[in-house]
Amino acid sequence: KELVLVLYDYQEKSPREVTVKKGDILTLLNSTNKDWWKVEVDDSQGFIPAAYLKKL
């Protein structure tokens, strides 16, 4: 599985998104959309702007 590093805090703005903190390491589930990547946070899944993430 691929991991990503969160570069900036992000507060979810819709139920399909997730809240993350700078420095979090998350599992990347889908990066086919260049603007929004799907990640797994704890036991939930959701989208975060790709610009907030860096592949490890």
Rank of each mutant, 00 (worst) to 15 (best):
W36G: 02
K34R: 12
K38C: 14
R16I: 11
K13C: 11
L7K: 05
D35N: 14
E40S: 10
A50R: 11
D24P: 01
F47A: 03
K54M: 14
K54T: 09
P15M: 08
I48P: 02
D9T: 06
Q45W: 15
I48S: 02
L28A: 02
Q11R: 11
Y52G: 05
P49C: 07
Q11D: 12
K13L: 09
W36V: 05
K21C: 11
S14R: 09
R16T: 10
Y8K: 14
A51I: 13
G23A: 02
Y8S: 09
L26T: 01
V39L: 03
I25T: 05
F47G: 02
L53D: 01
L3I: 07
F47K: 02
L5N: 00
K1E: 08
L28V: 05
L29G: 01
N33F: 07
E2W: 12
E12K: 15
S44G: 13
Y8E: 12
L3W: 13
K1L: 12
K55S: 06
V39D: 00
D35T: 14
L7S: 02
P49R: 06
D43K: 12
N33S: 09
K54C: 15
S14D: 10
K54R: 13
I48L: 13
G46C: 15
Y52D: 00
N30C: 13
E40Y: 06
L53M: 05
V18A: 06
V4A: 07
K1P: 12
V4W: 05
Y52S: 05
G23Y: 04
L53G: 04
P49A: 04
F47I: 06
P15R: 09
V4E: 00
T19V: 06
N33A: 07
L29T: 04
E12T: 14
S31T: 09
Y8A: 13
V18N: 03
S31W: 10
L56E: 02
W37Q: 00
D42P: 07
E2T: 13
Q45V: 14
V4N: 00
L5V: 11
E17W: 07
T32P: 04
K38H: 10
L56C: 12
G46A: 15
S31A: 12
D42M: 12
P15Y: 08
Q11A: 12
S31K: 06
D42E: 13
R16P: 06
G46R: 11
V20L: 05
D9H: 05
P49Q: 03
K22I: 04
D35F: 15
L29F: 04
Y8V: 09
R16K: 11
V20K: 01
E17S: 10
D35K: 14
V6H: 00
K34Y: 07
K54Q: 13
I25D: 00
K21P: 01
Q45F: 13
Y10R: 03
V20M: 03
V39Y: 01
G46I: 15
K38P: 01
L26A: 07
D24Q: 15
W36R: 04
F47T: 04
V41Q: 07
R16F: 14
S14M: 07
Y10C: 05
L3N: 05
Q11I: 14
L26F: 04
V20S: 02
P15I: 08
S31V: 06
D42C: 13
T19P: 02
V6T: 03
A51D: 08
S31G: 10
K1W: 11
E17R: 10
N33C: 11
Y8D: 08
E12V: 15
G46D: 03
V41Y: 09
S14P: 07
N30H: 06
L3H: 08
K1Y: 13
Y8G: 06
D42G: 15
T27C: 10
S14C: 11
K55D: 03
K22D: 02
K22P: 02
V18Y: 07
N33Y: 07
E2R: 13
E40I: 10
V41R: 11
A51C: 15
Y8W: 12
A50F: 03
V4D: 00
K22T: 06
D42V: 09
L5I: 12
D43A: 11
Q11H: 13
T27I: 15
L3E: 06
V6Q: 00
A51H: 12
A50L: 03
V41P: 01
T32W: 09
S44Y: 14
K54D: 05
T19F: 07
K54V: 12
D42A: 14
D35M: 14
V41N: 11
I48W: 02
K55P: 08
L3M: 11
L28G: 00
A50C: 08
W36I: 05
D35Q: 12
L5S: 03
D9R: 04
T27D: 03
K54N: 05
Q11F: 14
L26P: 00
L53I: 05
D24F: 08
V39N: 00
E40K: 12
G46N: 05
G23K: 01
W36H: 03
D24M: 15
K34M: 09
L56M: 09
E17F: 09
L3P: 03
L29A: 03
V39K: 00
T32S: 14
A51N: 12
V6A: 06
D9V: 03
N30Q: 10
F47V: 06
W37L: 01
V18T: 06
K1Q: 11
V6I: 04
D35S: 12
K34Q: 11
S31D: 14
R16V: 10
G46P: 08
K1M: 10
V20C: 07
W36N: 02
D24A: 13
F47H: 05
P15L: 08
D9E: 04
S44M: 14
K1H: 11
A50I: 05
L29D: 00
E40V: 10
E40F: 06
T32L: 08
P49L: 06
N33I: 05
L26S: 00
G23S: 03
P49T: 03
A50M: 05
E2L: 12
L3C: 13
Y52M: 08
E12H: 14
L5H: 03
V20A: 10
P49Y: 05
V39R: 00
S14N: 12
K1T: 10
G46H: 15
D42T: 08
D35Y: 15
K21V: 07
K13R: 13
L26M: 04
K34P: 14
Y8C: 15
T27S: 08
V18P: 02
V20Y: 08
E17H: 09
K38Y: 15
D42R: 14
N33H: 11
S44T: 14
L7W: 03
V41E: 02
Q45R: 10
K13S: 10
Y10E: 01
L5E: 09
P15H: 10
A50P: 07
K13A: 10
T19W: 06
K34E: 10
T19I: 05
K21D: 02
A50S: 13
L28W: 02
E40D: 06
L26N: 00
K22V: 06
L29I: 13
E40W: 08
K1V: 12
L7F: 02
P15D: 11
L3G: 02
L29N: 02
K21F: 10
I48G: 02
K21E: 04
D24C: 07
N30Y: 06
L5F: 07
Y52K: 04
E2M: 13
K55G: 03
F47Q: 04
K1F: 12
A51G: 10
Q45K: 09
Q11W: 13
E2V: 14
L5P: 00
L29E: 01
Y52N: 07
E17T: 10
T19Y: 07
V4L: 03
L5T: 04
L3V: 07
K13M: 11
W37A: 02
K22N: 04
E40A: 13
Y8P: 00
V20W: 05
T32E: 14
L3R: 11
L5Q: 08
L53Q: 00
E12I: 15
A51M: 12
W36K: 03
V41G: 08
E2K: 10
Q45A: 13
D24I: 06
K34G: 09
W37H: 02
A51L: 10
A50D: 01
N33R: 09
L26R: 02
V20R: 01
K34I: 09
